[in-house]
Simulated assay, not measured.
Amino acid sequence: MKLCGIELKGNDAVLVVLEISEKGPKYIDLPTRKIALGESDNAVDVIRFQDEIATFFVSNNISKAAIKKRAKKGKFAGGPDTFKMEALIQVIPDLEVELVTPQALAAMEKKHDIIYPSSLKKYQEVAYLVGVWLFK
Rank of each mutant, 00 (worst) to 15 (best):
L3Q: 03
L3V: 09
L8N: 03
K9H: 15
K9A: 05
G10L: 02
D12P: 01
V14G: 05
V14R: 13
L15E: 02
L15S: 04
V16M: 00
I20Y: 15
K23Q: 15
G24L: 03
Y27N: 02
D29A: 12
T32A: 02
T32V: 13
I35N: 03
E39I: 07
S40N: 13
D41T: 12
N42L: 05
A43V: 08
V44Y: 15
F49L: 00
E52T: 14
I53C: 00
A54K: 08
T55Q: 11
T55M: 02
V58M: 07
V58C: 10
N60Y: 08
N61M: 11
S63R: 11
S63K: 05
A65L: 04
K69R: 13
K69D: 07
A71S: 15
K72Q: 09
K75M: 12
K75C: 09
G79W: 09
T82K: 04
K84R: 15
M85K: 10
E86R: 08
L88A: 02
V91A: 01
V91S: 04
I92E: 06
L95H: 09
E96G: 04
V97G: 06
E98V: 09
L99D: 11
V100K: 01
V100T: 12
T101V: 08
T101A: 02
Q103D: 14
Q103P: 08
L105E: 03
M108I: 01
E109I: 02
E109D: 12
D113C: 12
D113Y: 12
I114N: 01
I115P: 06
S118T: 14
S119I: 14
L120R: 11
L120M: 10
K121H: 11
K122V: 14
K122S: 15
E125K: 15
V126R: 14
V126C: 14
V126I: 15
Y128K: 07
Y128R: 00
L129M: 13
V130I: 08
G131C: 10
W133G: 02
